[in-house]
């Protein structure tokens, strides 16, 4: 047995990969339904001509849609970041580059979450 493999095996047993694998499936299904709801409201129930600033502002006046969009934002960002993390784990073999890319990835992901949540929580319609 090579030392490398014995070492990789000797890492503390963790269910992290299992948990994220399951999370990808659950979040994927949730995203599919939430996106479907989003598409129906934005593109089926309302004609594209109606969808303007005041329409979006009107929607955000309703706390239901704020929470809906917040949940969708959280799911999409975490699902996407985790997917990219797996791609990095698959293809980047250099330990340093891996750490760098993952740090950048989490930073961008958290930034998206913060900016998106900030808008959803503090949005005030501009009148006139």
């Amino acid at each position: 047995m090579t030392d490398r493999f014995v070492m990789s095996r000797a890492r503390p047993s963790s269910n992290f990969e299992l948990a994220t694998w399951l999370y990808m499936r659950v979040s994927g299904v949730l995203i599919a339904f939430l996106l479907l709801g989003h598409i129906v409201v934005m593109h089926v129930l309302h004609h594209v001509d109606e969808v303007d600033y005041s329409f979006a502002a009107g929607r955000l006046a309703n706390p239901f849609w704020r929470i809906y969009d917040l949940v969708l934002l959280g799911l999409v960002v975490s699902h996407g970041v985790n997917g990219a993390r797996i791609v990095i784990d698959d293809y980047v073999r250099s330990h340093g580059l891996r750490t760098l890319l993952k740090t950048a990835l989490w930073t961008v992901g958290i930034l998206f979450l913060v900016v998106g949540a900030f808008v959803l929580f503090t949005f005030q319609p501009v009148t006139g």
Binding site: S8, R9, R11, S13, N15, F16, E17, D90
Partner: peptide, 13 residues
Amino acid sequence: DVVNAREGVWRCR
């Protein structure tokens, strides 16, 4: 335990 490691079953795409 072995197949649950990072380089185990979860690398399967």
